[in-house]
Design a protein around this nucleic acid. Sequence first.
DNA 1: GAGTTTGAAACT
DNA 2: CAGTTTCAAACTC
Length: 748
Amino acid sequence: MDTPERNQIGTTAAPKFEDSPVFNYINNLSPIQPVKSIHTAQTFNSLSFSSLPSVFTSPHTSSYKESRFLRRRCYSDLSKPDFSSENGNKGVTGNVDELQVNSSAPDDKSESSTKLSSEPQALKSHSSRPDCDRPLPDSDDRAVSDPCVENNSGSGSSEAEGNRLVVSQTEEKEGTSYDWESLITEGADILIFSSPNGSEAIRLVQKPSSTLAQMMENDDANLSRMRIADPIESSGGQHEIEFSSSRAGEGCELKDMDQAIDDGISFPISSDSMSREITDEEVARYIADDCMPVSNLHRGMRRRCLDFEAVVSRRKNMEDGSNGCSVSTHPEEKTTSMDKQLVPYKSGGVVTRYVLTGIGLHLNALATTSKDAKNLNHERFSSERQLNLPNSGGSCHSSSTGLDPLSTSIVTEQDMDPSGSGVQSEEDAAMASAYVLADDFNQNSPKRKRRRLEHAGETELSCKRCNCKKSKCLKLYCECFAAGVYCIEPCSCQDCFNKPIHEDTVLATRKQIESRNPLAFAPKVIRNSDSLPEPGDESNKTPASARHKRGCNCKKSNCLKRYCECYQGGVGCSISCRCEGCKNAFGRKDGSSLLGLETELEEEETEANQMSVMDKALQGPEIQNNEEQNPGSAIPSTPLQLPRQLVPLPFSARSNPLRSSFLNVGSSSGFYAGYKHEKPNTAPVSDDAIPNILRGDGSPGAGVKTDSPNSMRISPPQSDFGLSPLPRTGRKLILQSIPSFPSLTPQH
DNA sequence: GAGTTTGAAACT
DNA sequence: CAGTTTCAAACTC
């Protein structure tokens, strides 16, 4: 855990004075400070990771924290993207680096990174790596995934942290724990807090240590300020500060902590070395760290999303050496929020996943999620419990946002994942699980793939498994490609080019398609956050509060089957639809409202399976929320789906943090969003709403939301769900501001 | 599991 | 822009 990041963080944090914004700002300006408190940093690292919420970034805060962020970002990429717009540069770069690191070579780098700690930048990059690296190795997947995940998750991290804390506590209890009990007791509180915001989660952590609390009291106030001022950074920044203060004297033990983490993420181990000095504060730290890992697990799960844009950068990093991490502090990189979005992640080196940020849903994602979700839930739980987190299992669950009665701890973790892209998390998890299961298989015989799909695949949910035979998975026919993710084992595709190995081809193809249709990779379904109907947007008005990007053209299915993209996406048909005999349960083109939806759905359900219904519901904003919370039935509760499924409008999310509309983005969506910003509405799509939605949901108007154009970023992708925000977990989506420029295409 | 249906994507 | 073809998912048996 020597990770430089922590150190840096700690350094930055060390000065409590930072409480005052001014002071902080100054600190940021001066690189020196970071160096000061290296020790403390570690504790925070985890925290920092968690901090995602860049969304709110206030320029000021961002500015002063930048140095810090950089570090943090390493952990949480997702959040970073948000920053990118404002702070962007640094943060972004950091993210990128992290991503690269993860993808490239986790193992070796981690160590090196620790060494680098002396250098702030290096630290940043390293810090990110180390986490990733650790986990990668093995069963530890959790840890491995965690770091990476965090990066990806970014926005959700904060919340996730809270959850994580809880989890970690539980785990620790089992293994060993001194102070843990107290911590645990507090854990409940933590959970609660965490849900809303990462910042809160952090607080909880702090709470555990009375000393910290005392010490921090003042700081807390400051922190709160910070948060307010900078929602985005808040979590990370806060943590840093707090811990630093608490930890100031400590420092050394971090290594032990790290080791412990590596071993099993359980701090207790570290405690041995630490002995008593580990005060509550340390415990808190550990917890925080643990949390991170946990979250990571989820994140690790991330699906292989393709970020084409990111890919490029990544490649560079990769090529350069695993060191992608290596300081990616370049300001330029930072500028591109896109990079953040893409977080390449390797699990077992098998597949790199990139998270795409986006707005709205990709039908594909939805579909997969819904179906799989059910299965996944079951499997996930089992796996999760067994593993406790661990890798594969964890990965899977991560996706599940729902509360699982069974494993609350786990659930929390999952929630945590939400980091932003519930979808991603799901996907990732699925991916991870898939990898784990299939290490052998890789792309091999289709049969095996199928098998996995059926079995492991179920768990994976999110992963879309395509079955392309002629398109080489380089056309929109391919769900994976369309969703911005690489094909993976579970896919039964033939002659697949949609793999990391063929990044160039994939990227080029994607560009081509985008050149033809800038919105081609945009989520097909654009959802407004349920919670926040924006007055301006008509889309909100739509029953579903979401609409299909282009509208369907159904003639025989009456928009009652999944052939219909609107239906599949859980949205009602709109004016833009050219369907005939529309009977879309989610809303007919002619205006029949969703109200009838339930009844209709029920009818349909009878016809189809409840399962299918559930899925639909999940897709559908309304239902989702409820269901998510209800783990119960097969449906889905599948938390997994939930997370992904709907992509609430990013904006809405902002408006309602609670609801969090996640932006899920279909993998591509993110790009899309960004893209739009760049090229507003050039989209071929005739849809009125769409452009508006995309923009705007944010857009336009909503001032705060903002979506800043940048904001479009979602914490990933996953996109899928969006409808309901996460139930409790609340992942909030943070829209991460995407840099003005569109993700993928920017290169255009 | 094979075959059919369907509608989007791609092509002309 | 419209019509046709291609494609793969969704669905049925």
